[in-house]
Nucleic acid binder design. Structure first.
Lengths: 237, 237
DNA sequence: ATGAGATAATTTGTTTGACAAGTTGTCATC
DNA sequence: GATGACAACTTGTCAAACAAATTATCTCAT
């Protein structure tokens, strides 16, 4: 017979402290930049050793709630989407390394970028179109320089993300792009197909400029799924 | 004049250890379940104190890469999407509490659920449709019991997520749902509008059953944006 | 031999104390 | 009043010890 799985779970001291600190921040209305009690003070207040305090503090730092600097008192952190997504990196890499979720991530990326293209087609201004045109023109000129071509390619996508005016989309898309690139660069972009890429970018741009949401989304999706297709051809045929 | 911002940054010892552990896992090909060296062994190997080792281990645990249990050796963790998304919770709450990104999150959710509905319309089987019909029928019967109504409502959305067959979508949608509900339940669902909700769910189901991707996505989007609309009416009129 | 239970060894959790290294506030000096 | 040295914090790291939980070992009855 197995041991009873119900009952209480013996929580670690640090977890308790972490909860107390979160409540303290919330109930005292501490905002970004405000200082938290020092370790010594918390030791006295909670009647607990220093390691437990430190462990809780570090956990909150990892979650992006507080900031700790050597010599200075811990402070409530400035909330940062970039930070949140960035801290996922290690975990995502672990996930991609030991599971077969790469295809799911690619599908998610395609959906995300297609949605951004759709919103961009709705919200784009003339300035936006002009900046995209400039990027596309620059990309055409650098068709012979792979690394520069790739760099501008990334900028094109990030520019569309920016037009969508949703920081969550923007940051998430950048993160997913990085994660995919870390694993195998080919999955992100394929060399030797510069002209096709330019044609597809042109289609995306035209759809956005025309304000055709459906066409923009479809053009972006086709663009990304084409890349996935090529990747599979190379690896599994 | 400000101090030179360039040069090197004095990394913490624990960060160094963390990198070394990650390399160790990668280069030795350690998979989920495999044991890592004990603290004592690492102290000897890296000629470093125990706190630094522990700090690095805890950091990796927070990122979901390893698992530590009292009394047992640290092991490479089973990769878990749920875990990754779940660990974002605290940080997201901090973000929502101190920035005005609620609308962006709602927009992201609408896009996510609309995309899942689109995929569900493409991949649905007869069994899927039957289970959705069963849920909708059960929801109709519980129109007078708000908490049960809400529970089935959640199940309906989760079922669609499951049909999309992309764990990333599924887990992410569940996470976003939880985050929004934490902040104010009204943003997730509105009481007193059970009949409207049922009508909209019916539209979504019909579109999915018909395999009409565009209609399914639009129905889901309308459904969620209607909720957002009502929320704004109450708070800002 | 084999399996089960007690026992010992190993490991992480926590405390205490101490010192190093960095930051912040104070105060005399110009 | 601004500046720079200095003292008072604070976090970073190490060390040694014990508590609590797990894992391996060994004994013993079957």
């Amino acid at each position: 017979m197995m041991s009873l799985p119900d009952q209480i779970k013996p929580r670690k001291l640090a977890d308790e402290v972490q909860d107390r600190l979160l409540r303290l921040i919330r109930e005292d209305g501490l905002g970004p930049g405000d200082a938290l009690p020092s370790e010594r003070e918390l030791m006295a207040r909670y009647e607990i050793g220093r390691p437990a305090i430190r462990e809780a503090m570090q956990a909150l730092q990892h979650r992006g709630v507080i900031e700790i600097r050597h010599g200075g008192r811990p402070r409530v952190a400035e909330p940062s989407l970039d930070g949140l997504i960035g801290q996922l990196g290690t975990g995502v890499r672990h996930l991609l390394a030991h599971t077969s979720s790469m295809d799911h991530l690619k599908e998610a990326r395609a959906a995300l970028e297609a949605e951004m293209a759709r919103i961009a087609a709705r919200r784009r201004t003339e300035v936006d179109i002009a900046s995209l045109e400039a990027l596309l023109a620059a990309q055409e000129l650098s068709a012979e320089e792979p690394e520069k071509f790739l760099e501008i390619d990334g900028k094109f996508h990030r520019r569309i993300a920016a037009i969508s005016a949703n920081p969550i989309f923007e940051t998430l898309a950048a993160g997913v792009f990085d994660w995919l690139r870390d694993f195998h660069a080919e999955a992100v972009r394929k060399r030797g197909l510069e002209q096709l890429t330019l044609t597809e970018h042109r289609a995306i741009l035209d759809a956005i400029a025309a304000g055709d949401e459906g066409a923009a989304a479809k053009a972006m999706r086709d663009h990304l799924e084409r890349a996935n297709e090529l990747y599979h051809q190379d690896h599994f045929q």
